[in-house]
Design a protein around this nucleic acid. Structure first.
Length: 596
RNA sequence: GGUCCCGUAGCUCAGCUGGAUAGAGCACAAGUUUUCUAAACUUGCGGUCCUUGGUUCGAUUCCAAGCGGGAUCACCA
């Protein structure tokens, strides 16, 4: 809740009541647009009917009332039906003065909301390395988790590793057939990439078989079911579910390669998990639930042996929850995982699934089935759905090799940041280790900001031919601005200049006023981004603040200001700006350097 | 075909529960540095907010239809 708006609402309500005997009318307040004088604007059109007055007259009358009756309000102006209201400088200075020593302005106290939220993100398959789509998922999940924490919730970051299923068997089978015992250490290939290589090889051979069958006269659908390779993979899956030692051993070995690879990528990306679930463990629970559901009559067993649920009455379709051969499908595992989680964390207020929007139907079905099974918490499950990352030629297809590999992209970002930094030549006095860290910070800053500034719900475009920018509306620009502020603060500290807002200060300029308002509004943006699960709101807010600061920096000197009171105030102001930038970027998982 | 999402400047994106002359960045053109870091700042160029209706004092925003693009409706995950 924005306090200034609250104050205004109360005063305006009184004005309406005293001047026109209007009560309970809506009070539409918005921020005053930049080109007009004022902080907040009331639109007065809505009151013309009841009062039979012109909007301009209403504006003037209400404005006069406010200035007379509210000591925080110093001025107003009226443009047509818009009453632009200004709070006085003292109001804004008092605000800054109140938060001057705070480091986490706008954040709620840790765990103060009493809510515990489990947030799942990443959710990789162990048959291929991570790509750009996973990067969006990881960054989004991490960021939303941090935003929810800043809103006072307790957050459990979790990962569900899809480590079993037919797709894993494909990689395993291909390796068995054509691998010649190749391992990450023998080949020097990162484990997840090595396994991914065999997944691609399976697919190539599989497609070849399909084509051969089609030439022999089968239609494509039949061919896809009858190709020897897929039948072999299915047999392997059955063996796996029966606990065949040889298959399990191979599975364990190959998965361990993948995990070692993922760990490297996660570490580079800077994401972590509080706990990790494996579907190889949760699918059994899923099968139990299907058995229970059968007994309860929620599910039905068909003649062919498959278990299904009819959701047509809910506008959905019939859904298989267990295959005819008794093996589990995707949703079986998800049922098991969900129940396990709420068993493991009985005080969960909410479970959030960070998964792409192509699975919206799946989650609709999943949550509905959980509800029908009688789990009260089913309505607390939320699908944090985000748009796909697309290339200029369309969707990325891992089987067609058109994916942007996560590791490659990260390396590219680091190389670019190194090159750019070298060209600008401002890193005198940095040690090699500091330089290395700076390159990573800036490269990651560019990538993360690029991905998080876009509304998560929308699909986003990535053009590999155009490298991610380091100028303009970008992470590095924000990082750079932070470094500039820190540089001034270091110098002020060396000169022992106090950082305080004096009561003697009687005037601030309009950019200073704007900056204080940014600090003031950060809290609201944190709440809003938490309520809408949108890091983009934070990203765009921080950019606007940074841009305003840059103009201020350009137009007004801080350390050369002659008036000591003003200088100290300015230091206090920019220190808070640095905090907001730093904290805002933290919510995006982006570090900000002290120097760059 | 059913359901859902999207359509804003040449490109990538903002635009909060309906409000003023629709904003940024990139690209393009021009300018700013003996002054706290030029990864910056300033100016210019650039728009049928997909189309047509409707609701409203007021619609990029809400509703309907149409056009265009995408996702999904698997015993894949």
């Amino acid at each position: 809740m924005n306090k200034a708006i609250g104050i205004l609402e109360v005063s305006i309500a009184k004005a309406l009541s005293e001047l026109y005997s209007i009560s309970n009318a809506p009070i539409p307040i918005q921020k005053t647009r930049n080109e007009f004088e004022g902080d907040y604007t009331l639109t007065t059109f809505a009151y013309t009917k009841e009062t039979k007055k012109k909007p301009e007259d209403l504006g003037n009358e209400i404005g006069n009332y406010l200035v007379k009756n509210n000591s925080n309000i110093s001025a107003f102006n009226v443009v047509k039906g818009f009453l632009n209201i200004s709070f006085n400088d003292a109001y804004w200075c008092n605000y800054l003065s109140a938060v001057v020593s705070e480091k986490y302005t706008g954040f709620k106290k840790q765990n103060s909301s009493g809510r515990t939220v489990l947030l799942e993100y990443s959710s990789p398959n162990t048959n291929k390395p991570l790509h750009l789509g996973h990067i969006r998922n990881n960054l989004l999940g991490w960021s939303v988790a941090e935003i929810l924490k800043a809103n006072g919730h307790k957050v459990i970051k979790t990962n569900i590793v899809n480590d079993r299923g037919i797709h894993i068997c494909k990689s395993m089978l291909a390796w068995q057939k054509w691998g010649n015992g190749e391992t990450p250490s023998s080949s020097g290939i990162k484990g997840d990439h090595l396994v991914g290589k065999y997944y691609v090889e399976f697919d190539k051979a599989f497609k070849k078989e399909i084509n051969e069958l089609v030439e022999k006269g089968l239609n494509k659908e039949e061919a896809e079911k009858k190709a020897p390779l897929i039948i072999e993979a299915q047999e392997m899956l059955q063996k796996w579910e029966k606990g065949d030692t040889e298959v399990k051993e191979l599975w364990k070995t190959m998965n361990s390669w993948v995990y070692a690879g993922f760990d490297v990528t996660y570490k580079t990306l800077g994401v972590e998990f509080d706990n990790i679930y494996y579907e190889s463990e949760t699918y059994i629970k899923g099968k139990d639930i299907v058995t229970d559901g059968l007994a309860k009559g929620v599910f039905v067993k068909k003649e062919d042996g498959s278990v299904r649920i009819d959701l047509t009455a809910d506008g959905l379709d019939e859904k298989v929850v267990l295959r005819a051969d008794g093996t589990s499908v995707y949703i079986t595992q998800d049922l098991g995982t969900a129940v396990l989680r709420f068993n493991d964390f009985p005080d969960l207020s909410q479970a959030i699934y960070t998964v792409g929007n192509e699975q919206e139907y799946h989650f609709k079905v999943l949550f509905l089935i959980l509800d029908k099974l009688g789990y009260k918490w089913a309505k607390e499950c939320y699908h944090l759905s985000y748009g796909m990352v697309e290339l200029p030629e369309g969707k990325m297809k891992s089987r067609e090799g058109t994916v942007v590999d996560a590791d490659d992209l990260l390396e590219e970002m680091f190389a670019t940041s190194k090159q750019t930094t070298a060209e600008l030549g401002k890193v005198e006095g940095f040690s090699d280790a500091e330089l290395e860290e700076l390159y990573r910070t800036i490269g990651l800053g560019a990538l993360k900001y690029f991905m998080l500034k876009v509304d998560p719900k929308k699909k986003m475009l990535f053009n590999p031919k155009e490298s991610i920018d380091f100028n303009g509306h970008t992470g590095p620009f924000i990082q750079y601005t932070h470094a500039r502020i820190k540089s001034i603060l270091r110098k002020a500290n060396e000169q022992n200049i106090p950082v305080i807002v004096s009561k003697d200060l009687n005037q601030i300029n309009s950019l200073e006023r704007d900056l204080i308002k940014f600090i003031y509004e950060f809290e609201h943006t944190v709440e809003e981004s938490g309520a809408t699960y949108s890091p983009a709101l934070i990203a765009n807010f921080v950019y606007e603040l940074t841009k305003t600061f840059s103009r201020y920096y350009h137009d007004h000197s801080i350390l050369k200001e002659e008036n000591e009171t003003v200088k100290q105030f300015r230091l206090a102001l920019i220190e808070q700006c640095a905090h907001i930038i730093s904290n805002g970027m933290h919510l995006l998982g982006i570090k900000v350097p002290e120097k760059m």
